[in-house]
Simulated assay, not measured.
Amino acid sequence: MRKSMKDLVAEARSRVAVVSPADARSGMKQGDVILDVREPVELDSDGTVDGAVHVPRGLVEAQADADTGKANEALAAKRGGDGRVHVLCASGARAALAADSLRQMGYDTTIIEGGVAGWKEANLPLRV
């Protein structure tokens, strides 16, 4: 059966919990990681969450796996249950796919509801 991106995102969302932007921010204050999977140009145009780890979607699996030699230390440190990784993108689709991949790799993940748009709607700070 052929699947569309919409199908893949829906399946990923069925396997990963969704968290509000405010709850993700609170979790970050408790030691969780916010992982922003947007492209660098998006960070420049829309702003960033202070303290978030940035890894573009296409590099997530490589930077989440310590065995690649290319791991992002802040992200890889959360593998195996040492806190959650709350995944953020522009609207939620890439975050869902990345969070599901990370879940399969042994991470405790959530999707930040609404992405950066939801973050802005919640009046949470972004660094521009």
Results as ranks from 00 to 15, higher is better:
Glu39Gly: 01
Gly106Thr: 05
Gly92His: 03
Val116Met: 14
His86Asn: 11
Gly115Cys: 09
Ala17Phe: 10
Gln104His: 07
Val128Lys: 10
Ala99Asn: 02
Gln63Leu: 08
Lys78Cys: 04
Leu43Met: 13
Gly106Arg: 05
Gly27Met: 10
Lys3Cys: 08
Val9Cys: 05
Ala24Met: 11
Leu43Thr: 06
Asp46His: 06
Ala12Gly: 11
Leu124Gly: 03
Leu102Asp: 05
Arg2Val: 15
Ala98Trp: 00
Lys70Phe: 15
Arg38Leu: 14
Asn72Leu: 03
Pro125Gly: 03
Arg13Val: 06
Asp32Tyr: 10
Asp44Tyr: 08
Pro125Arg: 04
Ala76Gly: 02
Ala10Thr: 14
Asp23Lys: 10
Val85Trp: 12
Ala17Pro: 14
Cys89Phe: 05
Ala22Leu: 13
Lys29Phe: 00
Asp100Tyr: 01
Leu124Ala: 03
Lys29Glu: 15
Leu43Glu: 12
Ser101Leu: 08
Asp65Glu: 07
Ala90Gln: 11
Gln30Ser: 13
Ala95Leu: 03
Ala24Ser: 09
Ser4Gly: 13
Arg13Asp: 09
Ala12Ile: 12
Ala64Val: 06
Asp44Glu: 15
Ser101Thr: 11
Ala62Pro: 00
Ala22Thr: 14
Val33Trp: 00
Ser20Pro: 05
Lys70Ser: 04
Ala90Tyr: 02
Asp32Trp: 02
Val37Leu: 11
Met1Ala: 12
Ala96Lys: 00
Ala90Asn: 08
Glu39Pro: 02
Asn123Phe: 13
Ala99Leu: 01
Val41Asn: 10
Ile111Thr: 12
Ser45Arg: 13
Arg2Lys: 09
Ala17Glu: 15
Glu39Arg: 04
